[in-house]
Design a protein around this nucleic acid. Structure first.
Lengths: 190, 190, 190, 190
DNA sequence: TATTAATCGAGACGGTACGTCAGGTCTTACA
DNA sequence: TGTAAGACCTGACGTACCGTCTCGATTAATA
């Protein structure tokens, strides 16, 4: 039984404006220059309206991730039946994102946010795993590539793959042709 | 040929005090609560003395890493000749650090710092690689484990390993017995 | 027509606390040791609240003068009908103030403030002229003393009188008995 | 008996450079933006060289006044035998100075300095009195103008005159034609 | 003539205050 | 009661100067 309540209800317009402002500012300025004040001003919203619904900028970012306002388009893991080809395409998309000026910063911003807010960490991992988890796909691909034998630690392989991407983003190592292939060789075998 | 200059020379005492204060505060309070003002106050030093030599807190942290004021002791990769055993011991030490209350935060703090300062990112990777690089050791171990065949992408294997550790720290997944082994299975084969 | 505005209104309590703190610190420490930071701290107020409403310490002092937080009590020019007696009493009060330890510094502090901020200069002059202007009183006293003949430059006489007081304060010349009388002789004739 | 001393003697070049830098900066930037550091830098001199010989910027300014680096040229009280004419010329020169852009600030800067440093106050008064004191000239002119009768308080008349000038400078009242005359009427009678 | 001590330029040092930005809370007027 | 606006206290930012100190080089009187 819901509590009886009077007064206006949460404004969906304000919520959307805040999430969009956050996504925009995060991409434009980076995590550490993202401010609650800036979000409110950009969204045309009172500061209190932000604080009423989210406790911190990390929480707003987490919700942005959940709503797909960040990392939207290309990061879905395709499914052609050939795990190697699918992962190559997926890694290629991520590396392309990393190479772009905007994308280079966005992943690092998300990592910074994740380092401070556990929720963002979890959401970020889920977002990078694509709609269906990478480990699940690896599970189903057992036997089709050298390293994926029966009982292979697919969770850990996925972790290693995603972790390598994060490390790339953190260490700003320039991306070379063939990097995606070598990384897949590393975790899937050759 | 350096310009001949007279006048007082940089105070090593102040430098040490600043690095030690930084290391202490980073561990105690985390990256985002670490402030230049706090560093100066804790070190008993004027703020300007910090800014004179480092442009940002990230730069101070980078130098702390270089000096081994952070992540010192247990993270050296042993060398018994058995790569699997060595990496197991090394990973175990890191996981032990991650499980400790202080250590849990310290790695996330370093990741946050790395996300904002390229130099910290590079130094962090070097620090985690141990005194001799992990990839070098993998190179020499070619042929002794399934995945390390001639021409194996040792750089990428090292990246995957270190990346998996960072992802662990970020996602706050609790560490289970056998995790280290499964991770090594994932990148070295079983 | 003022812009319709919602939101909280300026806090009168904060305003009063700031003016009182300013007056106290100016008297206690002098103009050049008066700081915006000290004012805010003494008033128990955020620095930004001071800067929101006043651009500089000079502006705060000017408002203190206007509110009578400085130079309040004894500097009113009495009105007995006898201009000479009234001015003697008034000058005596000012000289008494100048002789006191606190008062010696306060006038010099105000002069320092006036030298930097035009508004303080104007307000200081008004404050020293008493509630009714000295020149107005001189005007009405024309014919009762030697120098005040029809068309006498009463504005300039008042200026000379007030200026002499300022010069006294600046040059720290000790005040002698009879000084007030001689000064009045100088500008009003004997 | 002087202490036996060896070593180089005070550098006159440095002293001159400092006084000239001080005069220049005081005129250009005003008293409160004048800094010891700026003086040293402008003079091409070490900070310690300034502090070795003067305890404060006020002291440097006082010596500038003494050396005639400030208020040099036109402020000598002429001596034609006609006190009224001489004072008119002298006041006119001062008012001209006050009206100029540079001069407007310089007197206020000196007043600010005087408010903080007694020595500057004394020197400023002497400088304004001209080479021979105004009061001495008034003494000799007794009997030639209405207000200067036997036993007239010439000291106080001089004070009133100079004080009025200071008040003018402080209150930024624009100077009108005839002001000098009216001021002299005020203190000398008509 | 060699010694010695004070001077000079430079600038690092521990500090204080500057004026600004943002954090998170609270207040007001409106819808 | 939710909202836009924004004042409030707090605390950190990065900068400018303070007055002291230390350096290596220079210079003049003393020994």
């Amino acid at each position: 039984m819901p509590l009886p309540r009077s007064g206006p209800v949460r404004s969906e317009a304000a919520r959307q404006a805040i999430l969009e402002a956050t996504a925009r500012l995060l991409v434009e300025r980076g995590y550490d220059h993202l401010t609650m004040e800036g979000i409110a001003a950009t969204a045309g919203v009172g500061k209190q309206t932000v604080y009423r619904w989210w406790p911190s900028k990390g929480a707003v970012i987490a919700e942005c991730l959940l709503e797909g306002k960040l990392l939207t388009q290309p990061l879905r893991l395709p499914d052609t039946g050939d795990i190697r080809r699918d992962l190559t395409a997926w890694l290629g998309a991520i590396f392309t994102l990393l190479e772009s000026d905007a994308g280079e910063g966005i992943l690092r911003s998300l990592i910074a946010a994740a380092a401070e807010h556990a929720e963002v960490g979890r959401r970020l991992r889920d977002s990078l795993s694509g709609s269906e988890s990478v480990s699940g796909r690896l599970e189903r691909a057992i036997g089709t590539v050298p390293n994926l034998t029966e009982g292979a630690p697919v969770e850990e392989i996925a972790e290693a793959l995603i972790g390598a991407i994060l490390l790339r983003a953190l260490s700003r190592a320039p991306i070379q042709p063939g990097d995606a292939d070598r990384l897949l060789d590393a975790v899937l075998g050759r």
